[in-house]
Simulated scan of single mutants.
Amino acid sequence: MIKLSKRLQTIADRVTAGSRVADIGSDHALLPVYLIQSGRIPSAVAGELNSGPCEAARKQTADAGLTGKIAVRQGDGLAVLQPGEVDAITIAGMGGSLMADILESGQQSGKLAGVQELVLQPNVGEDIVRRWLVRRGWVLADEAILEEDGRIYEVLHAVYAEDAEIRNIGVYDLTVLPLPMESHKKAGWLYRMGPYLLRKPCGLLIKKWELELQKLERIRHQVSLSESPESREKEAAIREEMNQIKEVLACLPTDKPSFKSWSS
């Protein structure tokens, strides 16, 4: 049986056993091959936009003797699927904006019909994905954060629910952040940082946002070198964002981050 990277293993562990799975942007089809080899799922679709990765997926599938169980298809996003063909969809390794566009296109074309589960790993823009899920009747059931090869990733596990609107009120409960901050700003940070990750903050979450503070400080310093009114406004906005990140981190029930020496 093939061995997955830590990132792909985290995704695989969240796929419900027995599901028919579509892995979109499957690259070498490592995830569907593993899921079938491990006995977790009976069949899969591996979708790829480009011919090179698509051929690599076909070779991987053939080498594993799974050509009859994994359908490798070339196409754009969920266009490789038929409505009702799969129960779960995994998408990993792309920006949150692109991921949301793929899901929205699939929603509009009926390709999400019958799908009950999404396991998503956006490289950036996780908040865009979380907002799409809420808007389209999905409930975030679980989140994970991990580090691999010097990069920090988040994995989002969502399920479709008829009562999603009610359940999402609980998921994005503003009392998670006990701060004197306007409600819309609290909600914004729940989307950006992750409602479950904020409930049980770990050192890796703190590290991710400390690194974000460092990046913002570098940008703020560059902007401060200009005297234009636009630069002054941008610098003020960056300062405000940094201050809000510090407020959120400082209220979390974990070891407090050491960012006092940064601009405020």
Rank of each mutant, 00 (worst) to 15 (best):
A158G: 03
L146Y: 09
G84P: 00
K186A: 02
N50I: 02
L146P: 07
D23E: 04
R7Q: 04
S231R: 11
E154P: 01
S38R: 15
Y153M: 08
W262R: 14
I245L: 12
N243H: 14
G52M: 12
N168Q: 09
D142V: 00
P180K: 13
K215R: 14
E126C: 13
G203L: 03
R58W: 06
L49V: 14
L30V: 02
Y160K: 15
Q116L: 09
Y34F: 15
P253G: 03
E143V: 09
W262M: 15
S261T: 15
N168D: 08
W189Y: 15
P180A: 14
A79C: 10
G114E: 08
V176F: 08
S258E: 14
D173Y: 11
R40W: 08
F259Y: 11
E230R: 09
L156E: 03
I91A: 00
R135Q: 14
I36E: 05
V129E: 06
L197Q: 00
L35I: 12
Q244A: 10
L81K: 03
I36S: 01
E240W: 10
V139I: 11
S5L: 14
L103N: 02
L179H: 05
I11N: 05
Y34K: 09
I36A: 09
L216T: 02
A62Y: 06
L198D: 05
V159T: 13
R40S: 13
L49R: 12
R7H: 09
E240C: 07
V159Y: 02
L31C: 06
L133G: 07
E117A: 08
G77I: 07
A22G: 03
L225F: 05
S38N: 11
G68P: 04
K59T: 15
A250S: 10
E212S: 10
S26I: 07
C202L: 09
D87P: 00
K69D: 13
E104T: 12
A144M: 01
A29L: 05
G84N: 11
G52N: 14
M99Q: 09
G77K: 06
A187S: 12
R199V: 07
A161H: 13
E233D: 12
E165C: 09
E85Y: 08
G47I: 04
L211Y: 04
L120P: 01
I206T: 13
S26T: 15
D23S: 10
E210P: 00
Q9G: 08
Q121L: 12
A237G: 10
Q107I: 07
G137H: 02
A71D: 09
A22C: 03
Y196F: 15
L4Q: 09
R14T: 00
L174G: 00
L66C: 05
I70E: 06
K207M: 06
P180H: 14
A29Y: 05
G110E: 02
D149W: 05
Y172V: 06
S261W: 15
P229Y: 11
G75A: 07
R220I: 04
A22S: 05
D13H: 05
T67H: 03
K3I: 13
E117V: 06
C54V: 03
K234P: 00
A187G: 09
P180I: 08
A113Y: 06
I70Y: 05
P180Q: 13
E85T: 10
V139C: 10
I206R: 02
A164R: 06
I24L: 02
G96N: 04
P253S: 06
L140Q: 03
A161S: 15
P122C: 07
L81E: 02
